[in-house]
Design a protein around this nucleic acid. Structure first.
Lengths: 114, 114
DNA sequence: GGGTTAAATAACCTATCGGTTAAATTAGAA
DNA sequence: TTCTAATTTAACCGATAGGTTATTTAACCC
């Protein structure tokens, strides 16, 4: 069994996967079953089960029970904690936008990547 | 070489490590060298170099040059993008807090009736 | 009970992560 | 040039991540 990381690390790690972010986006529209969540992805059922487990351990979702279905529901507290952490840096990017030199350099570097 | 993930995934993955978040917190106070960043951690130099590389590939920092030193500097744009993503869910947890607020208010009013 | 459907578990595979030590690089100082 | 300091690169290691297929469990329906 893996050692439990701190909650914030677990949250950011859970968000670091586009499939999981898509699942959260879907759940923001309302709770739904694992099968329904799996449908849009070219991915096996067990893979989705694993993603849901990661999200659950990060506190980002909770699971319910409705006959054979195990609906997943968005739990926003962990998102809130992640947002709070980032918020501490907001001051930083708001005050640094007048750094034209860094801006142009970044644009140039991004251009080279493609 | 690893396949480049999408930028948002790279950012969240970079934030999913307490050492790297501590590095960013230090850099929010001002740019500094790799050695200075390594000092508070019980960790070898190469390990810090790797963390800095992860942060750099995520666009969260940039590196400079000052003699033998390679000062790292916080780059806030990627943090901004991550914050924007989370912001889309703000409505969700704020609604929940509104619900809680209304619930407490209702409890209070019901209490007054008795 | 027997069949069907939804989901989870088990076992496995490959790639990436986070660390190590040892060697190479880069730049200044004597 | 030679020495020294800061950092990176190379090579390696064990653990974790993200996927697969096959099997099992859970709950409903007849």
């Amino acid at each position: 069994m893996s050692l439990a990381p701190d909650p914030l690390s677990a949250t950011f790690a859970a968000l670091a996967d586009p499939t999981r972010r898509a699942i959260l986006a879907r759940l923001a529209l309302g709770e739904t079953s694992a099968g329904e969540l799996a449908r849009p992805f070219a991915m096996s059922g067990p893979a989705v089960t694993k993603h849901l487990k990661v999200l659950e351990r990060a506190g980002l979702i909770s699971r319910g029970r409705n006959a054979q279905l195990r609906p997943a529901k968005l739990e926003a507290a962990a998102l809130h904690a992640a947002s709070d952490w980032l918020h501490a840096y907001r001051r930083f990017w708001e005050t640094k936008f007048d750094d034209l030199d860094a801006y142009l350099k970044r644009l140039d570097e991004e251009g080279e990547q493609q």
